[in-house]
Structures are given as structure tokens and as C-alpha cells.
Simulated assay, not measured.
Amino acid sequence: MLPPIETIVENFEFIDDWEERYRYLIELGRTLPPADAALHAESNKVLGCASQVWIDLNVDASADVPRLHLRGDSDAHIVRGLVALMVALFDGKTPREAADTDAFALYTKLGLGEHLTPQRSNGVRAMADRIHRDAVRLAA
């Protein structure tokens, strides 16, 4: 099960070695539920990522306050971990909260920009932009 984003941030701060952080990121990716064929639809594909990335963002309107439900997957282990960060950050937020959340700030706070390739950094930016666009659309 994917831990809350606050726990993930604390764990990153606790782990000093970047090889261990990469392993933790990969483990986070393994906590995502298996993707079904519907998630891998072309409409869920995130453009701008070097790896294959799929993100599906829906609104669960069954509660008093509508909340986002985010699913994601990737064909690369580390990128799947980055997708897991996005899921932990956005899943359960209202569309307005998600629209107001700066996902790239989390990426920077965790120091990932200094340790990932420029292609992966661009992929994180593409994921964050896609989620932000969808959240703004759903909040309207």
C-alpha cells in the first residue's frame, strides 16, 4: 500500500544515500496496483515522457465532497516510482486542492532534480502539467 505523501517525504529526508533513495522510489512504484488494459488507453498516455507513462484522473462524487482518484503506471521502474509520488500527492484531494498543488515543488524538495536525468525531469514536469490541467478542468 502506498504510504501518505508526508511519510514519503520523511523517508526521503531520512535516507542519505541516493542509491537507497532510488531503491525506495522503485519500491514505491511496486506498491501501485497492477494496471488494467483501460489504464493503458492512448487517452491516458502522458506525452513528453521518455518512458511509457499513463495517468488516469477521475472524480469520485460519491462522497459529500468530490475527491480525485488517480491511477498511474509506467514501463520503467524508477518512473513508476515517480508516478507513485504523483498518486500519493494527488489522490483524495478535491479538484480545487489538486489544481492549487505544485507537484514540481515536491520533486524539487526531494532533491530529485539534482539526481535524475534531464529526460526524467522533463517527464516529471509532463506528469505534473497533465495532472494540473485535468484538475483545473475538473474543478471548473
Rank of each mutant, 00 (worst) to 15 (best):
D56I: 00
T101P: 00
E97R: 03
M86D: 08
H40M: 13
P34M: 06
A105Q: 11
P66L: 03
A63W: 00
N44F: 12
R71V: 02
A50Y: 00
T31G: 08
T31M: 09
P66M: 12
L89H: 09
L68D: 02
D102K: 08
E97V: 01
R67C: 03
V53S: 08
T31V: 01
L106Q: 10
S74F: 09
A35T: 05
D100Y: 03
V83P: 05
L85H: 10
P34R: 11
V53M: 06
V83E: 06
R96I: 13
T94V: 06
R71H: 10
D56G: 05
P66V: 06
A41V: 07
G81M: 05
R23M: 11
I55C: 05
D64G: 13
D60N: 14
A84K: 09
L47G: 15
Y107D: 00
M86G: 13
R23L: 14
S51Y: 07
K109L: 14
F90E: 01
P66C: 06
E27H: 14
F104I: 14
A84Q: 14
P33C: 03
V59R: 11
S43Q: 13
F90A: 11
G48C: 14
I78W: 01
V87G: 07
A84I: 10
L70V: 15
L39W: 05
G113N: 15
R67M: 03
D73V: 03
H115C: 07
L57H: 02
L32W: 07
L70T: 00
T101F: 08
Q52K: 13
Y24V: 04
D100S: 14
H77M: 09
I26M: 13
V79D: 04
S43I: 10
D102L: 08
N44P: 14
A63S: 13
L25G: 00
Y24D: 03
Y22W: 09
E42L: 10
A88E: 12
R67I: 01
L110S: 11
P34S: 11
D36I: 04
L47R: 13
D60K: 06
S74E: 08
L116N: 00
V87Y: 10
C49F: 03
S43H: 13
L32P: 08
D73E: 11
L25A: 04
V83N: 05
P33K: 10
L89I: 03
L28Y: 07
T117F: 06
H77D: 09
V79P: 08
R96T: 14
G81K: 06
A50R: 14
R96H: 10
R30G: 13
D73L: 03
F104L: 15
G48K: 06
Y22S: 01
A61G: 11
H77R: 12
D60M: 05
Y24T: 02
R67H: 09
V65F: 04
L82P: 07
G48W: 11
T31L: 12
N58C: 03
R71N: 08
H77K: 13
A63E: 11
A50P: 05
D64K: 12
L106W: 12
A88S: 15
R23Q: 14
K109H: 15
